[in-house]
Write a protein that binds this DNA or RNA. Structure first.
Lengths: 145, 145
DNA sequence: CCACTTTTCCCCACTACACCCCAAAATAAT
DNA sequence: ATTATTTTGGGGTGTAGTGGGGAAAAGTGG
């Protein structure tokens, strides 16, 4: 499963190369294809095709006649975008997602098990520094189940 | 299970050799592969591949749509790194982990049952000396279950 | 329907670093 | 003392990451 962090550059065509260390964990069923969408915080979520499938199944269960569920579905899908890696293991990230994550010319790539997250390094630093709780506190809280 | 302590050197490529005494306890299922991550204190945790698996299974149960659980996942994985031993039974420790544990040119390797810990010897000495409680006090507290 | 512009896709090339192999030094065992 | 094993060091090579150019496709306007 995806783990670790990497600093990569993004060129003026919006291309980002997927780190080789992360590529090793992509199953062949994904067919070198990814679905990207806006993440829970100011980042871009990137799912291998097969992993996205399980999310899509959850979304299918939503009742679109209920306004809140309908709204959520729109928010999830409006910026969703599918793309394949090119010969150099890169994907193109569309403009609206780049703006959402406030990305400039450098990206922080974080492996998060089933998905890959793309951050502006500065934004990520603010996100991490922003919490008042320490790693130890959160760890004991979340993992003490 | 891992036990004992060892002083080894770390070269300018970030390589540390795993003590032969500890290698004996690594199960074949680990495939000579380790996952290293930031420890609870100023040290690096190193899990054989198979031991890490149980941690990963716990992490997979988190709901990444809940901000706090998402944050914890990021903190856990951002510095996680997988590597195999080379022909000389060494692993490469990435720069960010070395900085986290304030490691210079010598490391203290401690066997801790399921995992191996890597410390800067000086930092470890401060950590041990730093506690006001004696070994006897902590022992009676923790082991009286 | 055609001509033109713009964007997307694919291929080639350069650079740098990570990995692998070889080998010496040091420690432990016979 | 000799041999074996463990630990440490360094050098060459393949591959990962990056950038750019040209062909194809799509979009726009006359």
């Amino acid at each position: 499963m995806f783990k670790g962090q990497f600093i990569h550059s993004i060129d003026n065509k919006g291309r980002v190369s997927i780190p080789a260390k992360l590529r090793k964990y992509i199953s062949p069923e994904a067919n070198n294809s990814f679905v990207m969408t806006q993440g829970i915080d100011a980042c871009i979520d990137i799912y291998p095709r097969d992993q996205w499938q399980t999310i899509e199944e959850k979304l299918l269960k939503l009742n679109t006649f209920i306004p809140k569920e309908s709204r959520f579905l729109r928010l999830m899908l409006q910026n969703a975008h599918e793309d394949e890696m090119d010969g150099q293991s890169r994907i193109v990230i569309p403009q609206n997602l780049l703006e959402y994550a406030q990305i400039e010319n450098e990206v922080l790539i974080i492996g998060a098990l089933k998905k890959i997250e793309i951050w502006n390094p500065k934004v990520y630093k603010n996100y991490i520094d922003g919490s008042s709780e320490t790693f130890e506190q959160i760890a004991s809280e979340v993992m003490s189940l």
